[in-house]
Amino acid sequence: MATSEVGATAEIVPQAGPRVRLSRGTVFLLVVLALAVLGIGLQAASDVTLFAQITLNGLSLAGLYFIVASGFTLIFGLMRVVNMAHGSFYMLGGIIAYLIQERMLNPDPTSFDLPQATLSSFLIPLIVSMFSVALLGVLIQQIFLRWNQGQELRQALITIALSIIIADQAVARFGGIAKEISVPVRKSIELPIVGMYGTMRLVMLLVAIVVGVILVLIISRTRFGMIVRAGVDDRQMVTALGVNIQKVFAGAFFLGAMLAGLAGVLGGAVNSVNKSDDGKFLLISLVIVIVGGMGSLPGAAVGAVLLGLIDSYSDVYLPDSVTNYGVLLTFFLLVFVLAIRPYGLFGRPA
């Protein structure tokens, strides 16, 4: 067996690799990228603490982005459904947890001091909110998307409609002002080099890593994950092999929506619950998934880190008069990645 393999290999005539030809545009983009890295490096050297702080800011923000985008990419990769209501799941996660926590803490309306959450009055809203959003995701999938299987544009339009309805209902019932979900941990802790740093941001980063590990385990070690992987590569073949793909679809939507709900609660605790977050996080998920490659978990992680760091560095290292345009850099990243890897960094043709 081994011999034949060696023999087979030996017969292959080594071929010259395709010559890497870089277009002028790509060279230009690479030069811009190199200059940006150089610029950041020079500025970082002048204030290491600041650099460490904003890097950690970028990474913790990336954690939040990853939790949202991993659900999005999972649903997309398997079902080819661009779920345009994904941002609404994020927003609802925050709102539901805030409302439950408000009931639990029952703050005195005349009191000036804000209520302080205990572990249970943080975890219960978090868990209930996650599962409520997950169930809503499954309901949406079953009621609106299941009978439109294969009609990608139709499904996308249905989810856009749902997201607009959810946003309107949220502003009507929840109001527009930002609210904070109270957390049971100490506000900040002392870190080496970085100095004082917000505890919840670290928690957020940690949760993102745990979520990433669990997702990788699910995808690589479980039967569900195996079907998902197979489904990403060839959905028709999986169906033909007798797998009940509908169950897997529902499972994917459950998991994806649950992750968005979880991110909503964490985001609400770190950045406040804001009713305009739905559009923002949908856009972020789309960019991350396009940059990272549709349906790829490592892609979502790399995309999230890139986006988080760009967001964070541009706030600080761009000159004060142009920080407003930091968001444009996100789209430069998009153009750059698509120019050199049209399927995204980790993407493959379907």
Binding site: V82, A156, I160, V171, G279, L282, L283
Partner: peptide
């Protein structure tokens, strides 16, 4: 087709975010 679809959806999303369409017809 997927390339076009995702590009279209991205543009729609940017439009929605830019217009801050969280509409409040109810209000």
């Amino acid at each position: 087709r997927w390339g076009w679809l995702s590009a279209t959806l991205l543009i729609i999303t940017i439009g929605i975010v830019a217009a801050a369409c969280g509409g409040s017809d109810a209000e």
